[in-house]
């Protein structure tokens, strides 16, 4: 079985990319939130429960540069989501067999 990295780049408030990813991502996969996808990582926002509900069987990452760009450095992120930079993004791609973008 291959290991998958799922990339979600759209806000869950605007599009269903995150919903579909969470519906179809297999246990043990990783999810990287980037671009407007980072809004799903906000601890006090309405989508936090959807992410928290899968923290037990998926690993979540968020792209730090996109968090900072959107003014969220002062805003709590969900506990247990790992913040990575572009180098960390590259490592995640290398560590998983397949990268699937939820466009």
């Amino acid at each position: 079985m291959t290991t998958m990295l799922h990339l979600v780049n759209k806000s869950p408030f605007e599009r269903n990319n995150l919903d579909s990813c969470l519906r179809l991502a297999k246990s043990g996969s990783a999810v990287l939130l980037l671009e407007d996808g980072v809004f799903a990582a906000m601890n006090n926002a309405a989508y936090a429960d959807a992410v928290k509900g899968r923290m037990g069987d998926l690993k979540f990452y968020v792209l730090g540069p996109d968090v900072s760009a959107r003014g969220l450095d002062d805003t709590p992120l969900i506990d247990g989501i790992n913040v990575v930079d572009y180098g960390g993004f590259v490592d995640l791609v290398a560590e998983h067999d397949v990268a699937q973008s939820w466009l």
Binding site: N9, L34, E35, D36, Y86, F89, V90, D91
Partner: peptide, 30 residues
Amino acid sequence: IGILVNEGPFTHQASDSAYRFAEAAIAKGH
């Protein structure tokens, strides 16, 4: 690592993200 870019510059962030990713991948020796 191959990269597919499906959006043009400016309207979407896709090309920026792909560029930063490509730069970082090369810096990591890929």
